[in-house]
Design a protein around this nucleic acid. Structure first.
Length: 276
DNA sequence: CAATCGTCCTGCGGGC
DNA sequence: TGCCCGCAGGACGATT
């Protein structure tokens, strides 16, 4: 499942590959994954230059020369893959293809069709769209300090910590994998209510989130599910996960069997001994 | 107001 | 071998 490190990996790769390229042709195979009519989508993107690739939470933001944006969310199984040559074979689940001026193509595919590519007309529309989303701070923004993290937690005393970490309105970009890994790092049982966390634990959680996600980005993300980066390659961070999907296996820290529970409808693994 | 539930969709694994 | 059933999962909208 693409979370912040996976989406950020794609952003960095695409920034190098497609910035300043022109979109020469667009094909839409699955109208339901775009937000406007196929005709309008094509009319508004063909012939435009790609200016910049940004990211907010788990959403990729492609800025075009007509001051419009393409927002892409991969949800569980989406890919955004750059093919240097347009004749290369691509996913059979391709929904949108952007052909670029250097003879390449950018293919959005998603076998589940949960993901989307949204056309956003201008900066104002983008602003109001994100205002509606109400995303929390970006973990790697300089103003997301440990103090800020503590202040935000104070407002959510009754919430179980792991569920809160996954809430995009609390912190942007953290999903089921990294929320579980951060709890393991900080030796916190994911079910703990925020109000029971002490200062040391909150500090460790903050450090863990950043440290783990920074390492994950360096490894081009994790491919525990079907994730591929913008070059169509698997990430490497799945080899360094400590609890995610390790139910029944031995805790790397204390050799206890990892336990799996359900929290708000999401599978959650943790070590019942060293995560208290 | 906040937490939970159903929904979207499809590959995959288990059961027989 | 192959079919069928049910499950997982991010985020949204509806419900309690």
């Amino acid at each position: 499942m693409p979370e912040l490190p996976e989406v950020e990996t794609i952003r960095q790769q695409l920034a190098k590959k497609i910035s300043d390229k022109k979109i020469t042709k667009v094909e839409v195979f699955t109208p339901k994954i775009i937000n406007i009519s196929q005709n309008d989508f094509i009319k508004n993107t063909e012939g435009k230059l790609i200016r910049n690739i940004d990211r907010r939470a788990k959403i990729l933001i492609i800025e075009l020369s007509n001051r419009a944006y393409l927002l892409c969310h991969l949800k569980l199984s989406g890919h955004l893959i750059y093919h240097p040559k347009k004749d290369e074979s691509h996913s059979k689940f391709a929904h949108v293809i952007f052909y670029l001026s250097n003879g390449s193509k950018l293919v959005f595919d998603d076998f589940r069709k949960f993901g989307y590519v949204k056309f956003v007309r201008n900066k104002n529309e983008l602003k109001s769209l994100f205002a509606k989303e109400g995303f929390g701070p970006e973990p790697f923004d300089s103003d997301f300090t440990k103090e800020k993290f503590k202040t935000l937690l104070l407002k959510k005393q009754k919430s179980p910590i792991k569920t809160l970490l996954m809430d995009q309105k609390f912190i942007a970009g953290v999903g089921n994998v990294y929320a579980q890994e951060a709890c393991f790092y900080a030796k916190i049982n994911p079910q703990r209510k925020v109000k029971t966390l002490d200062d040391r634990e909150i500090g460790d959680l903050y450090d863990g989130l950043k440290k783990i996600m920074r390492r994950a980005i360096a490894m081009r993300g994790n491919s525990v599910d079907s994730y591929l980066d913008a070059e169509g390659k698997q990430g490497k961070f799945q080899n360094y996960l400590k609890v995610y999907d390790r139910e029944g296996q031995i805790c790397f820290r204390c050799k206890t069997k990892i336990k799996k529970i359900w929290m708000a409808g999401r599978g959650t693994s943790f070590c019942p001994k060293c995560q208290r």
